[in-house]
Design a protein around this nucleic acid. Structure first.
Lengths: 248, 248
DNA sequence: ATTTATTATGTAAAAAGTACACATTTCGGA
DNA sequence: TCCGAAATGTGTACTTTTTACATAATAAAT
């Protein structure tokens, strides 16, 4: 985090200056802000999205993204983490801001600006607890319409993910700790919507040298089991910079 | 723009439903929203940023980004374009949302959330009119500190630009209509902070086939003049998709 | 005419990406 | 226990992209 002027002790006349600034700011229009989280999961070779039944009567029967209003003096990132924690019980989930949506009529009750977040988690994770039965995982490709402008937000986050996953090894956040190369490839194919050559795919990951062979095999598969790997998060964090040049 | 539910005529009971939703939304905390534009220019082989003297007494002597509050029912993009138009007189400027900044103490007068925009324009453009003498172009590399959290915003936009310019031909927005390959290369070198091989650089742009030789030469240079080119915006717009796969 | 600075250009080597086939292993059922 | 089905695991040739590198030609300034 960059140091900013607030880290310095306040100077003599600052209190009155803040009052002046306060008057200025007080004249600005004020808007309710929400965060909306697109929570992606991966199961049965399909990309999934966690949705909730809309809490608005007028959207009865429609699903919507998980969101909440942003509290007083709450950071946007914090609000998004809070939503995740409240809805899934999980901490330490991959989360990134995508962008703000501000169409004046996007909320039927009047103006609400929302900031969209994209989050990736492992559906099978033991800490994952989907509270309330209004929450369900939906296959991404089957989602046709959502409440509010949430379909637009979902599509933006999906595109964001498609691009992002080609530049950073994010996919692991969607998989169990131990996974086979087939699962990994299925994941990439599902997200990118293409089919990939198995040998080239494996070669690519081998060259990255970020997979650790855990010395175990798949179980309960109706065919020859594959080796299981885990992602070398430590090594990735260390060498992050060289991945995309700048740590963006 | 995705079609949303508001395109449909309202159903019978909708009015009262909106009232319910309205009550809900009315309970949300409300926040002043601003947009801040990082306006990049390029001159004398240097990346420049347009800054204004801070209008807050307490930041006297410090520079800040160009911004404004977002009006009632105004889209964020619209607010950013408005700032650009008001400050530079220019329309049709390249502009893109980067992200929101929400640190609760980022504004001394209390909570203000801002959405950062990155904009690229041609400093020499004949329509460019910098109103008021509180506005000045600053060499990017010389900017040490800014009012508010604007240095942090500037750095985020700069990183965003570095990444973006490697994926899309944005650089042309910073150059005159006609430019030499040397100017183009200087631009890339300034933004990326590296030096590039001239032959390979030219080869790369030649292979894109997006430059039109206008049949003129540089003038007033103290050495052998180079050919002038213009960017083939039409062709680029047509083939945009193939550039990065998805039109992101 | 000479010097200086810059334009313009090609080729070879290395790296990365793509296309493609076959033997091996396990499961499960006959 | 044998066989078929289904998936794993592996290598090589070809193409494309990226990188490294040097010399002749042009215009300006003196």
């Amino acid at each position: 985090m960059t140091k900013n002027v607030f880290d310095k002790p306040l100077e003599k006349s600052t209190t009155s200056l803040i009052k002046d600034a306060g008057k200025l700011v007080a004249s600005y229009p004020k808007v309710p802000i929400t965060v909306d989280c697109v929570i992606f999961g991966f199961e049965e070779s399909e990309l999934k999205v966690l949705l909730i039944r809309s809490d608005l009567e007028m959207y009865k029967g429609l699903w919507s993204l998980l969101g909440d209003n942003v509290k007083n003096n709450e950071e946007l990132d914090h609000a998004a983490y809070r939503v995740l924690k409240e809805r899934t019980g999980m901490n330490d989930v991959y989360l990134d801001q995508v962008r703000a949506f501000s169409h004046p009529q996007r909320h039927p009750a009047g103006r609400v600006i929302t900031v969209a977040y994209c989050s990736l988690l492992n559906i099978q994770h033991h800490e994952l607890k989907i509270y309330k039965n209004e929450l369900h995982w939906h296959s991404f490709s089957s989602i046709k319409g959502l409440a509010f402008d949430h379909k637009e937000i979902l599509d933006a986050c999906y595109k964001w993910l498609q691009k992002r996953i080609q530049e950073h090894p994010l996919g692991f956040n969607l998989l169990p700790d131990k996974f086979s190369l087939r699962e990994l490839q299925n994941l990439y194919e599902a997200i990118l919507g293409v089919s990939l050559d198995r040998r080239n795919f494996r070669k690519k990951f081998a060259s990255m040298d970020l997979l650790i062979d855990v010395g175990e095999m798949e179980e309960d598969v109706p065919h020859r089991p594959g080796k299981l790997y885990k992602f070398n998060f430590e090594k990735y964090e260390k060498n992050k910079r060289k991945w995309i040049g700048i740590d963006f």
